[in-house]
């Protein structure tokens, strides 16, 4: 007879694994990817391919030669980082910048902290912010949707958020809004913006899939979107001339992508439901503050990075509800 295996209980496992979770997220990104290709064509394809491949490559090289551990470049997390990085870049950005972004994301954002599970900040956002600060022009000239065959030579313009930011100083918000794509178009993603951020409906489909597969919980997306809606709603009710409609804030910029994919990153978000709600609400409030009162038209990425930094604190002080009242032992 073979030697019996002995191990502590439990002796049965759910079969869930990190690659399964990561590929689950990747699958949920497919609708948004499809929509982006539909709007931005070949540019989106090039940026995404370069981003994903270089993220995998850098992960492999760093793990193998610098950290000298067993490479885990195919566990899906590098692919996911690459995809998310591509999603928050303009589709006309030169590919060598994408490579630099991928290096920043994997190298600075992830591997310096010790790889998957140890990073404090969301790697894709680190890459994006790195590029945003290094190449402000390239990162803020967005191609107009519908130019399938143009890559870096596509005609560009400003995002609705930027237009709004510049406009409200001179004119009432309602008037600017009327010159922009309709809410339906914003919902469908027919606007200028980072390649994967535009299609709110496709991202929401992805969220439903992730909720169904129980990859994420509702706490973070709901609290971010909810707090943005409430905060901008209050401002709008106070002064509709100076502040835009809350729906406009929900549907534009990187909010949907940020709330559904960036902020819900396992590693950099809090561990408890209560913690997640606080984290999400904080991100929402800071996003609105930056959008309306800050220097930049868009603030989701900064808000998420700021609250990534608060996550260890939230984990330390926000505890789940324990079962049963505490009584003195003995």
């Amino acid at each position: 007879m073979t030697r019996l295996i002995v191990s502590p209980s439990p002796h049965t496992y759910s079969g869930e694994s990190v690659p399964r979770l990561m590929y689950g997220v990747i699958i949920s990104l497919l609708p948004a990817f499809g929509v982006s290709v539909f709007y931005f064509g070949i540019g989106m394809l090039i940026v995404t391919t370069v981003s994903v491949l270089t993220c995998i490559l850098f992960e492999y090289l760093i793990q193998k030669y610098i950290l000298q551990t067993k490479p885990s470049h195919l566990d899906g997390s590098a692919i996911l980082t690459g995809l998310l990085l591509a999603f928050c870049l303009p589709a006309n950005i030169p590919f060598w910048m994408v490579i630099i972004g991928a290096l920043a994301a994997i190298g600075i954002g992830k591997m310096t902290f010790g790889g998957l599970g140890n990073n404090i900040f969301n790697p894709a956002l680190v890459g994006r912010v790195f590029l945003f600060i290094s190449f402000p022009v390239a990162m803020t000239s967005w191609p107009e949707p519908g130019q399938w065959m143009q890559y870096t030579d596509a005609a560009t313009g400003a995002t609705p958020l930027a237009l709004m930011k510049e406009g409200v100083a001179m004119r009432p918000a309602g008037e600017i809004l009327s010159e922009m794509p309709s809410f339906l178009n914003l919902f469908l993603g027919n606007m200028m913006g980072s390649s994967g951020e535009v299609a709110a409906f496709a991202l929401l489909i992805g969220m439903c899939y992730m909720l169904y597969r129980r990859i994420i919980t509702w706490h973070i997306p709901v609290s971010i979107l909810g707090s943005v809606f409430i905060f901008t709603g209050i401002l709008w009710l106070v002064n509709p001339d100076q502040f835009a409609n809350p729906l406009f804030h929900l549907l534009t910029g990187g909010l949907m992508l940020g709330a559904i994919y960036m902020a819900t990153d396992y590693v950099t978000s809090p561990m408890t439901g209560k913690g997640m709600l606080i984290y999400g609400a904080g991100i929402g409030v800071v996003t609105v503050l930056i959008r309306i009162f800050g220097a930049y038209p868009e603030g989701v990425q900064f808000a998420i990075l700021i609250f990534n930094g608060f996550t260890p604190l939230l984990n330390k002080y926000i505890k789940p509800k324990r079962f049963g009242k505490e009584v003195a032992h003995g």
Binding site: R3, L4, I5, V6, S7, P8
Partner: peptide, 9 residues
């Protein structure tokens, strides 16, 4: 002789 195999932490 090893009569079984440990598979825990």
């Amino acid at each position: 002789a090893r009569t079984n195999e440990y598979d825990g932490a």
